[in-house]
Simulated assay, not measured.
Amino acid sequence: MTADATPPRRLRVLAAMSGGVDSAVAAARAAEAGHDVTGVHLALSANPQSFRTGARGCCTIEDSRDARRAADVIGIPFYVWDLAERFREDVVEDFVAEYEAGRTPNPCLRCNEKIKFAALLDKALALGFDAVCTGHYARVAVDSEGNRELHRASDMAKDQSYVLGVLDERQLAHALFPLGDTVTTKDEIRAEAERRGLAVAKKPDSHDICFIADGDTQGFLASRLGRAEGDIVDESGTRLGSHEGAYGFTIGQRKGLRIGTPAPDGKPRYVLDISPVNNTVTVGPLEALDVTALTAIKPRWCGTAPATAGEYTAQLRAHGEETPVRVEPAGDELSVTFTEAVRGVAPGQAVVLYDGTRVVGSATIASTTRATATV
């Protein structure tokens, strides 16, 4: 297998430039590799702020200007494309609907699937580009039969393959990740940006949901879904307190429950279940969160779909650890059984499957099986 993050032939590359250091360095490396690179900043907000606050949010006017300045230094053409309406429909509205249904979505996966490697890629191909380049830390490799595969980044500490697990074979065929083979620290990437004269070298990374710039997810959801008071109950159904909207909770949450009555054993309680039907949140002990299996839907394969059951490892969160699983495909569903019980698994999250460093595919968690029945 050979690395193929920057193929030897000269490509027409559209570099998605967020205004951050990673995408700027990725664009610079693609240009340095001899590709014909054009930079593009995606305007994803209908009403962008003029400035970001530290590491909160992105897609501000400031970000677009930072991206333009980086493109000027690299010496590549630069454009701003307005995808705000598509982003609102496919990412923001999906995010709100998922929380309203009692699920916990990952908007970064949805953005990669629907925006960067669907809307953006389709437009790029229509304009004659060969590939889209981003600053993600992941690798594209070619197997002995010429098939392109998605792999973890060389530096596991920065690996972002989890949020790219939604990419299919066609999308991978037109994806470039110039940072994926880099075994360096983020400080070294910043040092490279500084050597290249890129002013974003010291710009803080964005760590929050990009369309919730103040970081107040619950407030964002309340402004769109309204406040709806409901009960917080224990496993037996005993009312312990109230809430202002079940959408403000996630499975495994401990803080912010505002329960006045302590548990009989004095131990903390955690959110075990969220029921949008009766607007009820169920809480209980930590061990009640143990999950032994799950059912996932809408699988997306980074290559050929496995036809039979197999042994893989699974990652359940963007920065989570791998855990051994057995996977049985059944049409548009997957049955995933864990070798050891795991915690903090919520419907709506993505389960991403790996075979070594290779990303096999991903699916959306629909339901879980607990080690001990709780509700």
Rank of each mutant, 00 (worst) to 15 (best):
K202R: 15
E85W: 09
I232S: 02
D82R: 09
S206M: 09
R65H: 12
A307Y: 03
D168H: 08
D181C: 13
D265P: 08
L221F: 04
D159S: 13
V92D: 00
L11K: 00
P276C: 07
A141L: 07
R326Q: 07
A97K: 12
F177M: 11
F51C: 11
P204Q: 01
V325D: 01
G356V: 13
A222V: 13
E194K: 15
G230D: 03
S50V: 13
T6F: 13
K298C: 09
V40Q: 00
A157C: 10
T304N: 02
A124C: 08
I297E: 01
A173I: 13
R227K: 15
G256E: 01
D22F: 01
S154R: 12
K114C: 11
T2A: 08
Q218C: 07
A119L: 04
A305E: 03
G219R: 03
V91S: 03
E62V: 07
V25C: 03
E113Y: 06
V163E: 00
E100Q: 13
E100H: 09
R258N: 05
A305I: 08
D63I: 09
S242Y: 07
K255V: 09
V359T: 11
S144F: 11
D82W: 09
I212T: 01
L286G: 10
A71V: 08
I259Y: 07
Y79D: 11
T38Y: 01
A15W: 05
M17D: 11
G248I: 03
A138Y: 11
G165A: 14
L240F: 09
K116M: 10
A314S: 15
A131S: 12
